[in-house]
Nucleic acid binder design. Structure first.
Lengths: 364, 364
DNA sequence: ATGAAAGCGCTAACAG
DNA sequence: CTGTTAGCGCTTTCAT
């Protein structure tokens, strides 16, 4: 309904009061002292005329647009963006804000990024969310500094704007621990070759978790390739071909795991009877639909979007100070998603170390 | 930079002219007659002060917000939404508009949908894009009628708002034709069980294309299941187990194809030597990464988002009348994406009809 | 060739 | 308890 052309003035006329009164009752202004009868008449008139406030006029007057700018890289190329957007949109909406979206590219110039934030600023957004599609450190546009802003899934190189990132290490540790808990003692890893934080932190976590469990680390059990399906296939072939193959493998991501599944099939290895797998990312299209469904660790995209928005709004509304967060990233957990790709190593497995495994298991 | 607090007034003062003049030169007002020197001074001052127009104030004055409301279902659950959003965002931005996004659910009440539209209207959007994640007919929120609006990937049941949809039939025909062109004469189909337009139109196209090629239609060669991976697996098992199996299969979507791949593997059938497959949707994560990569038909999500936005803006700017489009949906092509899952049927294939195939082929 | 002033729809002092 | 009025930052008519 919300007929355009009907403003506070028409409502005032219809209710036989002044615009002030209308504004007061419609906004429930605390100090306004308006009679119950008048209130009633105003509400009725507004209802009847299908009045809806012009948020732009309100914004101009109050210096609050109720709009949050959302700059996101590669909106369409990964399914991750959708979850971040959803987390942001839902929490923004719950608090009366709306999201204005701008697509960015990871390759765009710094200038183009600055102009995107300038653009948002011209449109009077109350704050800015800046999202990347994979976790990394970056130089934020200069004009972002000082604004209410939060980075989603990346860190500001100069630690000046607050951010929220996934707990890579915790997630990776949980993944490896899942394998250890199942009784595996000879565990391999398929790693990425890109120089991104995840490559290093997941490997670190892999080693540490092994060490914590008193398990030896074997250099030859980590094989690296580009983190796509073909890479996973190649790396898995190298890892699983030798007689000395591991009984379980931690994959850098679900795509590599998908490639690894094929390698296992080609090698005549059953999953999870002969090899167990755990992935990373929980790309549902893949993880859920692989055979058997892949146990993996989920990245908290929705949660990061929600956290960022919640805290951005708190800052906008003066309920908190983002600068307190700027020094240290907020780290959100990466929960395990248990499916069917992990089992205990079998006695009659392809390796002669079966006895050892079962011994290890009964100790647990 | 775009320092807040610097407005047209400051620029005027700095340039030693009136706000009128500033407005005139900054907006290149046609009828404004301003000296070249003055123009220069104004631009310099604006530049120096880092002036950026307050788009809200402009909007209030001109009754044009330069904002487009985008209501989308299930933003995060399919990768499709991302492409539609991207198409809309990029074309909107190219024309000076921005996108305000609202997530909807396919299950929400009609009332909630109306209030989403009302909300957007309160924020003075110039027009509304309404997107669904799969093609269907729906009852649009009542208050959408009469507004500049276009539906993306669905049709208005009452034909009152214009829309853009994919050419299901053309895509399906191309898919089947690809198989026929490769020399297949005994072609099966894995269909969906849901009562959505695509189920019927893809089957229709399947039959028609067969008929056009003078090929017989065999009822038992279409097997239906829910359109997910397990469904594809089940249906494909039924289809491919019999000796009388087809040499090629058209799958309702890529997910069913993924299931079918597994069925083929279990049956010892090589792809594409023993069975060719073509999918639908071009879900890149799947289609690209299956082994062999899946030949499929792409849904024009980006293009639909772009078309919708382009035409919405034309309507907003009075360059066209959307009502002319409302009567008939605009249909965008679904291009084939050729990969490696289709080959000619082999002589030494599992079927004894091999000779026939090669004969059929040489006729083409 | 330039400027004064009204007003877009609303909020918030301030007055009564 | 309610109304008058100024003004948010801008565009645009009308004067000069």
């Amino acid at each position: 309904m919300t007929n355009r052309t009907v403003g506070i003035k028409e409502v005032a006329a219809a209710a036989g009061v002044s615009v002030t009164t209308v504004s007061h009752v419609l906004n429930d202004v605390a100090y306004a002292r308006v009679g119950a009868g008048t209130r009633q008449r105003v509400h009725e008139a507004a209802q009847r005329l299908g009045y809806g406030p012009n948020r732009l006029a309100q914004a101009l007057r109050t210096q609050r647009s109720g709009m949050i700018g959302f700059i996101s890289e590669e909106i369409a190329t990964t399914p991750h963006a959708g979850r971040i957007i959803l987390g942001a949109e839902e929490t923004a909406r719950a608090r009366g804000y709306r999201i204005m979206i701008i697509n960015s590219t990871s390759t765009g110039s710094q200038d183009s990024k600055e102009s995107q934030v300038a653009d948002l600023l011209d449109r009077q957004v109350d704050g800015i969310l800046y999202a990347t599609m994979y976790h990394r450190k970056l130089a934020v546009p200069k004009n972002l500094a000082g604004l209410p802003a939060v980075l989603v899934d990346s860190e500001d190189i100069s630690n000046t704007v607050s951010c929220v990132i996934p707990d890579e290490v915790g997630g990776a540790r949980a993944a490896v621990q899942t394998l250890i808990d199942a009784g595996h003692t000879r565990i391999g890893m398929l790693n990425n070759t890109d120089d991104v934080p995840a490559t290093h932190s997941r490997l670190r976590a892999f080693k540490d978790t092994l060490a914590d469990a008193g398990l030896p680390f074997h250099e030859e059990l980590v094989q690296s390739e580009p983190s796509e399906v073909p890479g996973g296939h190649q790396a898995a072939l190298r890892l699983l071909k030798p007689e000395s193959r591991p009984t379980a493998v931690f994959c850098y991501n679900d795509r590599m795991a998908m490639g690894a599944y094929r390698a296992a099939a080609e090698l005549g290895l059953r999953i999870p009877e002969d090899v167990s797998f755990v992935g990373f990312d929980n790309q549902e299209l893949i993880a859920e639909n692989l055979h058997p469904p892949l146990t993996t660790v989920a990245l908290p995209h929705y949660e990061m979007g929600a956290w960022a928005t919640e805290n951005l709004i708190d800052a906008i509304e003066g309920k908190s100070d983002l600068r307190l967060f700027a020094a240290h990233p907020t780290v959100l957990p990466c929960p395990m998603v248990l499916r069917d790709s992990v089992a205990s190593p079998t006695h009659d497995g392809p390796s002669s170390r079966a006895a050892t495994y079962s011994a290890a298991r009964s100790n647990t």
